[in-house]
């Protein structure tokens, strides 16, 4: 069982971002530890509601995105692993009470988000603030980096200067690759509001980038 899970995880993790998107459509889950079957997320949710062992399939489907979402907010591997574990253990525990309406990822990321918020409350520290971000981000070496990388670096710095709420919206959209409707559920706002907020954020960031270039 361990070997199998590792193989699936490694395979998934080795995929590019776009490939992941396609891969998400066909999750693979172990049934009773013996048979492999292809299932969509919908099918996994449906089966997991009668047989919780199928929750593993949902776990494999989302573990990378949840981990990266949490890492993006905490900037620490150990914290990211701890909080990812807490997220999935709580999700597994709560899953029998979960009523599926097509928003599993929104439900899962709501748990992840709560875990991160609790973590920051208990540790009385702010989320990856600007100072922290400056330390985390690699310094630009003009000799070794091509212009695109410099641009990426500038963009990362601009993102680090955004408010926590704004950063979270970007993380949910571009790290967790969530749909607007699901983000709206996670952050408890209207979908239209989320769309507009993200649009304005992008506009601001792009304007700032253009001004930097000038």
């Amino acid at each position: 069982m361990v070997l199998y899970l590792s193989y699936r995880a490694v395979h998934f993790l080795s995929l590019s971002c776009n490939d992941k998107e396609q891969y998400m459509e066909k999750a693979i889950v172990v049934n009773s530890g013996l048979e492999n079957t292809n299932f969509t997320e919908e099918e996994l949710v449906r089966r997991a509601q009668s047989d919780l062992t199928y929750f593993k399939g949902l776990y494999l489907l989302w573990v990378t995105r949840v981990y990266q979402f949490i890492y993006a907010r905490t900037g620490d591997v150990q914290d990211a692993e701890d909080l990812t574990s807490q997220t999935f253990l709580k999700a597994c525990e709560a899953f029998p009470r979960y009523k599926h309406k097509g928003h599993f990822s929104a439900w899962l990321f709501t748990i992840a988000r709560n875990e991160v918020n609790l973590h920051f409350r208990h540790n009385s520290s702010r989320q990856l603030d600007i100072e922290h971000a400056d330390r985390e981000l690699p310094k630009i070496d003009m000799l070794d980096h091509i212009s695109t990388e410099i641009e990426m670096e500038q963009l990362r710095i601009l993102i680090a200067e955004l408010s926590e709420d704004e950063q979270e919206l970007l993380f949910l959209r571009y790290v967790a690759e969530m749909k607007f409707g699901d983000i709206a559920i996670v952050v408890r706002r209207k979908e239209d509001t989320v769309k507009k907020s993200l649009y304005r954020l992008q506009a601001r960031l792009q304007k700032a980038m253009e001004e930097d270039h000038e």
């Binding site: 490694v10 981990y67 591997v77 990211a80 993102i159 790290v175």
Partner: peptide, 19 residues
């Protein structure tokens, strides 16, 4: 910009949590 520097979860961690 947001994804390039994000690490993947460790294989051992993913497996252990799966178990």
């Amino acid at each position: 910009a947001m994804n390039d520097q994000l690490p993947m979860p460790r294989e051992a961690f993913v497996a252990q949590l799966g178990v």
